[in-house]
């Protein structure tokens, strides 16, 4: 398939490209130049450039939106909300059948869920609250939902929370901490990427509706969040289960060579 990736040079982009590059034709877009190892097609493009996104989407089978901006209010709305509007306008214009949207779990599971409840699942009504990142992403998802309902576009929303490096289970912004209170929605970067591939490839007949959302994390024992739908519908099988974070029997080897992983 021909896959347009928006915002492909962020943290998730390389893992999604790695998972898909041998199976699909990718046009990578971003406001920044591609990472040096990327040798495929690239277009410099801002996701909130509606005309530019529409033009880039011509001839594509699937659009994958990995774009995200968090702290600046103007940019957060431009990228997280307007970017989805641009993507859906492009999908409608070119009759693109499927769109993969990505975002943080709290675009759906706001504080009023997360601080109170368990077995949280991706089919709950969104309750993002007013936190900028969650709010702007939720607005973007709502735009996707409305377009999906009225134009028959399949929108698959993948939600992530805490991404981990497999070699030490640290994250992009924190050192690894073992056997302490972990985020019960933690996923290895490689698996984050293969989830995008699974969403691109899942047969339409397995989707219950044109708008389906999924939590992307491996089997974890907490039962805070529920990933059953992801495994059942997408057929996604995570390779890593970040076990050293939640099982005391799994420890870093003294050699520091991280054989446990």
């Amino acid at each position: 398939m021909k896959v347009l990736i928006l915002g492909g040079n962020g943290m998730l982009g390389p893992w999604a490209v790695t998972a898909m590059k041998d199976r699909h034709d990718i046009l990578l877009t971003d406001i920044n130049d591609p990472y040096p190892e990327y040798g495929g097609d690239f277009l410099k493009l801002s996701v909130d450039d509606v005309d530019g996104v529409v033009k880039a989407a011509e001839g594509m089978d699937v659009i994958v939106n990995l774009s995200v901006l968090r702290p600046d209010r103007q940019l957060a709305f431009d990228v997280n909300t307007m970017g989805n509007y641009a993507m859906m306008m492009a999908a409608r214009e070119h009759r693109i059948k499927r769109v993969i949207n990505t975002g943080p779990h709290f675009q759906l599971v706001g504080q009023q869920y997360e601080e109170w409840d368990f077995d949280l699942n991706p089919d709950m009504p969104p309750a993002p609250g007013t936190r900028l990142y969650a709010h702007t992403k939720a607005l973007g998802s709502e735009i996707c939902r409305v377009f999906s309902e009225h134009h028959g576009i399949e929108v698959i929303t993948l939600m992530y929370y805490n991404m981990k490096h497999t070699w030490n289970l640290g994250g992009p912004e924190q050192e690894p901490v073992y056997h302490e209170d972990m985020v019960p929605f933690s996923t290895a970067w490689q698996d984050c990427g293969t989830a995008v591939r699974a969403a691109v490839e899942v047969p339409s007949e397995r989707l219950a509706s044109n708008y389906e959302a999924f939590f992307i994390f491996p089997d974890l024992p907490h039962r805070k969040f529920n990933n059953e739908k992801t495994r059942r519908v997408l057929g996604w099988k995570p390779r890593y289960h970040v076990e050293a974070l939640w099982n005391k029997e799994t420890r870093l080897p003294p050699s520091g060579l991280h054989e446990a992983f």
Binding site: V50, R73, Q74, F77, T81, M82, Y85, H135, T136
Partner: peptide, 15 residues
């Protein structure tokens, strides 16, 4: 424009 209307009713409303 559509972009202006979406922007007004999301970002500017939020502000």
């Amino acid at each position: 424009s559509p972009n202006e209307l979406i922007d007004y009713h999301t970002r500017r409303m939020y502000n």
